[in-house]
């Protein structure tokens, strides 16, 4: 598989606090990767450095082989690196359709293709029935889907999903897992997914990276990671 994104020795320090330290990581084209870890482990910081919202203190980021460490958020987004925020971030005062339309515009889609593209994305995230509802009246779960729709509309190649199932019912969580796997396979997209929901992580069947105190604690399949006694300890706060 071709390498899509790789990071080398990524470090982020906030004054005294080390939020990420010497993180090495890569994701291939069409691959999903999960990142887990207890609260404050540095997961969001990690994604923010990839999306460009935070400047790394040290280390470098490569996308399709080019160094993008110095690029701004909007430049990385144009390359296809687009994040979903931990707290759903959509255009609350606009309808779902208008939300996606903005994303389609952001991708520079030519006028003639915008409508087709818009309908396609609404369908992909299964929001056609709610298309004319204002985002502010959508449920928390629907907003999360809408935000994933924004990433698709903007032509994301690498989806950075910070807790995409937070606030969802078990049913919605399951549907989200299916959606993400479906999308990455059908559109050959890659994804880095941060999650706390352990059932969701298990169903995703993607390689897992455990972050702890800003460092990569261990990596492996769900079975390997979940049978690791040290991992269980850090979640219980013993390590």
């Amino acid at each position: 598989m071709n390498q899509l994104l790789s990071v080398e020795k990524l470090t982020k320090r906030f004054e005294g606090l080390v939020a990420n330290e010497d993180v090495n990581f890569s994701v291939a084209e069409g691959e999903i990767r999960s990142v887990i870890g207890p609260n404050g482990a540095g997961k969001t910081t990690f994604i923010s450095m990839i999306s460009g919202h935070l400047r790394p203190t040290e280390g470098r980021i490569f996308f399709r082989g080019t160094d993008i460490t110095a690029l701004k958020v909007q430049q990385r987004a144009r390359l296809g690196i687009i994040r979903k925020f931990q707290t759903p971030s959509v255009f609350l005062g606009l309808t779902a359709r208008e939300n996606i339309e903005l994303a389609v515009i952001a991708a520079g889609t030519p006028r003639g293709q915008r409508q087709t593209r818009l309908d396609e994305v609404l369908d992909l995230v299964r929001m056609t029935a709610f298309a004319d509802r204002e985002a502010s009246v959508l449920s928390h779960g629907q907003r999360q889907w809408l935000e994933i729709g924004l990433l698709l509309g903007a032509k994301a190649q690498l989806l950075l999903l910070d807790e995409p199932t937070a606030g969802m019912t078990a049913e919605e969580t399951h549907a989200t897992g299916t959606l993400i796997r479906d999308l990455t396979q059908r559109l050959r997209l890659s994804a880095i997914i941060i999650e706390h929901d352990i059932n969701f992580i298990r169903d995703l069947q993607a390689p897992i990276t455990v972050l702890h105190l800003g460092k990569v604690f261990c990596e492996g399949s769900f079975e390997e990671v979940s049978s690791n006694a040290h991992v269980r300890n850090i979640y219980l706060g013993n390590e």
Partner: peptide, 23 residues
């Protein structure tokens, strides 16, 4: 199109920038 982008800036500028728009 341009007017819509401006509405997006009013609604959520950070989201729009993070989708690749030079706000």
């Amino acid at each position: 199109r341009f007017g819509k982008v401006l509405t997006g800036i009013r609604e959520n500028e950070m989201r729009l920038v993070s989708l690749g728009v030079p706000a």
